[in-house]
Simulated scan of single mutants.
Amino acid sequence: MRPTKSEDDALVDLVDVILRKGAVIEADVVIAVADIPLVGLKLRAALAGMTTMTEYGIFEEWDEAQRLRHREGVDRRVE
């Protein structure tokens, strides 16, 4: 009997890779009416799991603040 891989696993694998390694998406958008550019947008998004983000120095302060806030909340419940 040979192992098989369902097609649903491809999406799971993709999400796993994005969370572990991360991905950066960049886009330049120009909104124009009658060939006259009105608005220009430069977009950049980083997608990754929090562990990966903090390894690269992104959201370190936010992560530390959230962990401290959580610890304080747990300490209050224990008292």
Rank of each mutant, 00 (worst) to 15 (best):
L43V: 14
A34G: 11
L14F: 08
V29I: 09
V74S: 03
A23W: 02
D8Y: 00
T4R: 07
D63G: 10
A48N: 05
K5A: 02
I31M: 11
R44I: 06
H70T: 04
A27M: 06
I31Q: 12
D28P: 01
V24W: 04
V74A: 03
I58A: 01
V29N: 08
R20C: 11
I25W: 08
R69Y: 10
A27H: 12
L43D: 12
W62K: 14
M53C: 13
P37N: 04
I25S: 09
D35Q: 13
I36A: 13
I58S: 00
I25E: 10
R67L: 09
V29K: 06
L41E: 04
E72A: 10
D63K: 13
R69G: 07
A23M: 15
A46N: 03
E26A: 08
L11H: 01
M1D: 02
A65Y: 05
L38S: 10
Q66F: 07
G22Q: 00
L43T: 11
V24E: 06
R77A: 11
D16N: 11
K5F: 05
Q66E: 15
T52K: 13
V33Q: 06
Y56P: 04
L19P: 01
I18Q: 00
R67G: 07
A10H: 04
E7Q: 08
D16Q: 09
R20S: 03
R2F: 12
Y56M: 13
G49P: 03
M1N: 01
A27K: 09
L11A: 06
T52H: 13
I36Q: 11
V30S: 14
A32E: 14
D75L: 15
A45C: 12
I18P: 00
V17Q: 11
E55H: 11
G40Q: 15
P37Q: 05
G22T: 02
Y56S: 13
V17D: 08
T54M: 06
A23F: 11
A65E: 11
K5T: 00
K21M: 10
H70P: 03
S6F: 01
V78W: 04
G57V: 05
D16P: 00
R77P: 02
V33A: 06
V30W: 10
R20E: 10
Y56V: 07
D16I: 02
V17F: 09
K21R: 14
P3V: 02
H70D: 10
P3R: 09
E64T: 14
I36D: 15
P37M: 03
D75Q: 08
K42R: 15
T4S: 04
I31P: 00
T52D: 04
V33P: 01
A23R: 05
D63M: 09
A34E: 07
E7P: 00
R67W: 04
L41A: 07
T52N: 14
L19F: 05
I18M: 01
M53Y: 00
V30Y: 10
Y56L: 15
V33H: 07
S6E: 10
R20Y: 04
D35F: 13
A32Y: 14
Y56N: 15
V33N: 08
R69S: 15
